[in-house]
Design a protein around this nucleic acid. Structure first.
Length: 296
DNA sequence: CTCGATCCCTGGACGC
DNA sequence: TGCGTCCAGGGATCGA
């Protein structure tokens, strides 16, 4: 499942393989995951001028490809557009030789000026694509949370401690921090010894800083290892990542904690599986007064 | 504001 | 082999 490190890995691969290429034509299959499929015709003739990661999104910045100098006098129409890509759970964006047949779940294919095709393949179609004008891009950016790799101690603590939602929910909330998903949320909480059901406002400044530090360490380390391949994540070269070998909590239900050997437990927090060590990550003192649950 | 529930979607695991 | 069932999960949305 692509989170920040996986998306960063794909972006770096695409920067090497398709940056600067011109898009000659567009093919679209199923398009229920595309905001505005009819706009995709505008991709033709544009150049991939930059490729960036924004949270879990990839942003392919487009630029009108050069026109013979004498012909372009106006050039005012060039409102900079972008192609937004979210890989969802099973999305892949990678160049492919044009002769290779489409995968069963290839839904978008952009023919490039070097004969290859940049293909989007996504079995579950939990991803998202959109052709964004500068204006709609600005709105996407305005709605996003802080970049977890760049956020400072003060802002991190503020974003956590000003909320009454559980820390797990806050980490997953893309309007709080952009790019963190279930794996890296659990991994960072385990490392910081914070229970996933702790309420944000009850996290101490010290704990928040520990969490920020380990989250950044984990994300950076995972980027170096080219992400975690849990289900079917492959980078832009079709290769899996390695970070899943370093998971300490995620997916380890019943297995011994790497610190204290206590079996890792799995509970649902914020509607998501949450793996944690019941000994290292002590439960919040006061749970909400849930009548039947409290009785024992 | 925060929560849970529901939906989207398919493949993989599992039971029979 | 082939069903049926359950589960995974990011995000949108809706009602409590």
């Amino acid at each position: 499942m692509p989170e920040l490190p996986e998306v960063e890995t794909v972006v770096r691969g695409l920067q090497k393989s398709v940056l600067g290429r011109k898009i000659l034509s567009v093919w679209i299959g199923k398009c229920d995951f595309i905001d505005n499929p009819t706009e995709f015709t505008r991709l033709s003739g544009q150049k991939i001028a930059a490729i960036e990661r924004f949270g879990k999104f990839m942003l392919l910045r487009l630029a009108p490809s050069e026109v013979p100098a004498e012909k372009c006098s106006g050039h005012a129409t060039s409102e900079e557009a972008s192609l937004l890509v979210h890989l969802g759970m099973t999305g892949q964006l990678a160049p492919s030789d044009a002769e290779i047949p489409f995968d069963k779940h290839t839904h978008v294919s952009l023919t490039l000026d070097d004969g290859r095709e940049l293909r989007y393949t996504d079995a579950r179609r939990f991803g998202r694509m959109a052709y964004l004008t500068a204006e709609s891009l600005a709105k996407e950016i305005a709605d996003a949370g802080a970049d977890p790799l760049e956020v400072g101690a003060t802002e991190f603590a503020e974003r956590v401690r000003s909320r009454n939602a559980r820390i797990k929910a806050l980490l997953l909330d893309q309007s709080v921090f952009r790019g963190v998903g279930n794996i890296y949320a659990d991994e960072s909480l385990w490392r910081a010894k914070i229970h996933p059901a702790r309420v944000g406002s009850k996290i101490s400044v010290k704990e928040a800083e520990t969490l920020r530090r380990v989250l950044q360490e984990i994300l950076n380390r995972a980027i170096v290892m080219r992400g975690s391949s849990i289900s079917d994540f492959l980078d832009a070269n079709g290769e899996p990542g390695e970070y899943q070998r370093h998971h300490r909590a995620y997916g380890r239900e019943g297995k011994p904690c790497y610190r204290c050997r206590t079996p890792i437990r799995r509970i649902i927090v914020a509607g998501r599986s949450s793996y944690f060590c019941p000994k290292c990550q002590s439960a919040p003192r006061q749970r909400k007064p849930k009548r039947h649950k409290a009785a024992r």
